[in-house]
């Protein structure tokens, strides 16, 4: 959660410190806490640099490969439905610059499903309809799962 605060609030530091022994708080970084199963080497105190924010610099963007597939090439993906009355599999060759929404539309037609009723999932990541395919790490021959939008409780 990134809360950006634009308010000027003057820190009041006029109050003197209380006796150290009595009220000294003890700061415990989270990784000192013993956990039975969960991974224990989580560093909670990190001084990582802020991520680059000057994304409008075109020279930076062009250096970052957006996908393993060179532009202009087409991508063969295998789609498998986990929803609907029968498991179906289809091979489809797509343009990596295609939007996820467009792809879902096409898949909906092929599998006879309403695009609102499924998400596309590749290697454990759910594709965002507002994204284009090339923003994901896609390789030729990958399996794309058609998964339910199961949010009801």
């Amino acid at each position: 959660m990134k809360l950006i605060v634009f308010s000027l609030h003057v820190l009041k530091t006029g109050t003197p410190f209380l006796s150290k022994d009595e009220f000294s708080p003890v700061f415990i970084a989270e990784n000192t806490r013993e956990d039975v199963i969960m991974s224990e080497n989580e560093e909670f105190i990190e001084f990582e640099e802020e991520g680059e924010e000057e994304q409008d610099d075109p020279s930076i963007q062009s250096k970052v490969p957006r996908s393993k597939v060179p532009s202009g090439e087409r991508l063969t993906l295998f789609f498998r439905s986990t929803i609907g009355p029968g498991e179906k599999q289809e091979k489809l060759t797509v343009d990596p610059e295609m939007s996820v929404r467009e792809l879902a539309q096409t898949i909906g037609e092929i599998f006879a499903l309403d695009p609102q009723d499924f998400h596309l999932s590749i290697s454990g990541r759910t594709l965002d309809s507002d994204d284009v395919l090339s923003n994901y790490d896609l390789e030729d021959g990958l399996e794309v799962l058609i998964i339910p939008v199961s949010t009801a409780g």
Binding site: P25, R33, I45
Partner: peptide
């Protein structure tokens, strides 16, 4: 990052 602190209420 998250820190846990033991501290007196006052």
């Amino acid at each position: 990052p998250l820190f846990r602190i033991k501290v007196k209420r006052k």
